[in-house]
């Protein structure tokens, strides 16, 4: 997959050249509604976000904690779905051609949309990678042909329960970057142990040249700074969703400002 160079590689190359780490953030498409979500998406790069994960809303997000479950429900209630998710990314691409977008979600909405149509749309619109939470390497063949055909990175999760043998299996199907899940649990619930993550990330790095970002349960600067010493970046998910939840009734620019306050402080303390 080395021939595939897109925004993800370019971003990590630039960060490396600058001696910097990736700030990856997550929002659910359509939370709290389509219009506000689009604004937040377009603003995130201005607040120092290097890569954006956009969640595809799903009724039964099995691997997510209460914060992202509620976020998904708000989005669905606001009429969000996969085709609307692609639409706001399309709009985002009109104002931003540099920041990588990674779609993250569960397999059923993607499957019902149609696999060929989905990956083709990703390529056309400018989605750089996908993370399908409930599609382990054992079931990867369902999408393998499409990720290759349409040049969409197949980004995979590695967890504390992944052993050496599985790590190799996962690496075989991964491109773009690796996402290390720092806890055994669901999103936004437990706090990671820096020491444990360090061990795991060095084990991963001994087996691959792909960048490794760490996520699940990171919500403060200190934590991110410590984790960034060993990884290539951190994912801030539930912490941003919580801001959206708290200020969902505010105007889109006010919600965006709240996120800005949080992230600017975050980046400053971190870099």
């Amino acid at each position: 997959m080395n021939i595939m160079i897109n925004r993800i590689e370019k971003t990590f190359e630039k960060l490396k050249a600058d001696g910097d780490k990736a700030l990856v953030s997550f929002i659910t498409a359509g939370d709290p509604n389509m219009e506000k979500s689009e604004q937040i998406l377009c603003d995130l790069p201005k607040y120092g976000v290097d890569i954006i994960e956009v969640g595809i809303p799903f009724s039964d997000p099995m691997a997510d904690g209460p914060t992202i479950q509620k976020s998904s429900n708000r989005a669905i209630s606001a009429g969000s779905n996969l085709s609307k998710t692609l639409k706001i990314i399309n709009k985002f691409r009109r104002v931003n051609s540099k920041t990588p977008i990674v779609l993250m979600g569960y397999f059923n909405p993607i499957f019902q949309f149609g696999l060929e149509k989905f990956f083709n749309s990703c390529k056309k619109i400018g989605v750089d990678g996908i993370i399908v939470v409930d599609l382990p390497p054992e079931e990867n063949e369902l999408i393998n042909v499409y990720t290759k055909r349409y040049g969409v990175h197949n980004i995979r999760l590695i967890t504390p329960t992944t052993d050496k043998k599985r790590l190799r299996k996962i690496l075989k199907f991964t491109s773009g970057f690796l996402y290390y899940v720092s806890i055994t649990g669901i999103t936004g619930t437990k706090k990671p142990s820096v020491l444990e993550v360090k061990k795991a990330v060095s084990r991963i790095k001994a087996n691959t040249n792909l960048p490794v970002v760490v996520g699940f349960g990171i919500d403060n600067y200190k934590q991110a700074a410590a984790l960034n010493k060993i990884s290539d970046g951190c994912v801030i998910g539930s912490a941003i969703i919580k801001i959206i939840e708290s200020y969902k009734e505010y105007s889109k620019s006010k919600i965006s400002k709240k996120i800005e306050d949080f992230l600017i402080k975050f980046s400053k303390d971190n870099k």
Partner: peptide, 20 residues
């Protein structure tokens, strides 16, 4: 061996659960 009944069944879970 992949847990399939025809095309149905399989293992569609998060990585954390796979080893178990």
């Amino acid at each position: 061996k992949n847990g399939r009944f025809g095309k149905f069944g399989g293992r569609f879970v998060a990585e954390t659960l796979m080893p178990l």
